[in-house]
Simulated scan of single mutants.
Amino acid sequence: MRSTKLGALGATLAVAALVVSGCTAQTHEEVPMAESVIIADQWASAADAGMAAVFGTFNNTGHHDAHIVSGNSPVAERVELHEVTSDATGSKTMREKHDGFVVPAGGTRDLVPGGDHLMLMDLREPLHPGADVEVTVVFEDGSTLPITAQIRDFAGADEDYAPAHHDHG
């Protein structure tokens, strides 16, 4: 009789653990990616026209990777996610990163000069040092994270730009 009660208790505890873990996993999945990501040390390069870059460090406090797929800003026609690659000669080329940026669960993703960054394309107005610029990043699940970045003087990371070919037709 005692082993039957222990067996029943064990089965009950196992079912309870499955229910609790299932609820916990479901809760994590329902949390929008943007709610688990913060940005620190964000800043943008000054520019009179053309394009400007936004840098900083994304920190994901969540239990799942957060995937940034696009962005927008009132000061630019469009926001592109960029990477910088080197060829065999050491020449650096900046280009659009079509698969976006992943901020790993419990980790960080640095946006830095000469590396990954957000690029404000076709500026609608000059970006003057000391002012702020607003940018919003969009995650794969559609959630958004607004960013305010201080504009600073910055000459660039000495890379060439390889623009993507956009089909406007």
Rank of each mutant, 00 (worst) to 15 (best):
G114H: 08
M1R: 14
A66G: 03
K5T: 05
T61M: 12
H67K: 10
L127P: 01
E96R: 15
E83Y: 13
T57C: 10
P126G: 02
V102E: 02
P104S: 01
D141A: 02
A44N: 11
D141C: 03
T89P: 09
F55T: 04
T136L: 12
G71C: 09
T61V: 15
R2W: 09
G142L: 02
I68K: 00
H166E: 04
D41C: 12
H64Q: 09
M33H: 11
I39C: 08
E140K: 15
M1Q: 13
G90A: 14
S86Q: 13
G7S: 10
M1H: 12
T85I: 14
V135A: 02
A52N: 03
F58W: 13
G71P: 04
G10Y: 09
G169Q: 05
D87H: 07
S73K: 00
H63M: 13
P104C: 06
E159S: 08
G7K: 02
S21G: 12
L118D: 05
D167S: 07
K92I: 01
L127R: 01
D87P: 02
Q42L: 08
G106V: 11
A17R: 06
L120M: 07
I38S: 14
H98L: 01
L145Q: 15
H82N: 11
V102G: 02
L81N: 00
H28V: 15
D110V: 15
A17M: 13
H64W: 07
G130M: 08
D110F: 14
D41M: 06
E30L: 10
E83L: 14
T89C: 05
L6H: 06
M94H: 12
R95C: 06
G7C: 10
M121C: 08
V102F: 07
A66E: 00
M33C: 04
S3W: 10
S70K: 00
E140M: 10
E35W: 14
G142V: 03
G7P: 07
L13F: 02
R152S: 01
A34W: 05
R95V: 07
G169D: 07
V133F: 04
G71F: 12
D87L: 07
T12R: 06
A46N: 11
F55H: 13
G100A: 09
D122E: 13
H166D: 10
A44W: 00
G106A: 06
I147N: 03
G169A: 04
Q42W: 09
P146D: 12
V103D: 00
M94P: 04
H168R: 09
L123D: 06
H67F: 05
A49Y: 15
V69Q: 00
H67L: 15
T136K: 11
G169E: 04
P163C: 05
V138I: 14
E83C: 08
G90D: 05
H82W: 07
A53K: 05
A49M: 11
F55V: 13
P113A: 05
G156Q: 01
V31T: 06
E125Q: 07
V133A: 08
T85K: 13
G142N: 09
D99E: 13
G107E: 06
A105C: 14
D132R: 10
V19N: 04
F139D: 00
S36Q: 12
A40E: 15
K97Y: 07
E77Y: 08
M119A: 11
T136E: 13
V103A: 01
N59G: 11
F139P: 00
G169I: 01
L6C: 06
S143W: 06
T12C: 09
V79Q: 04
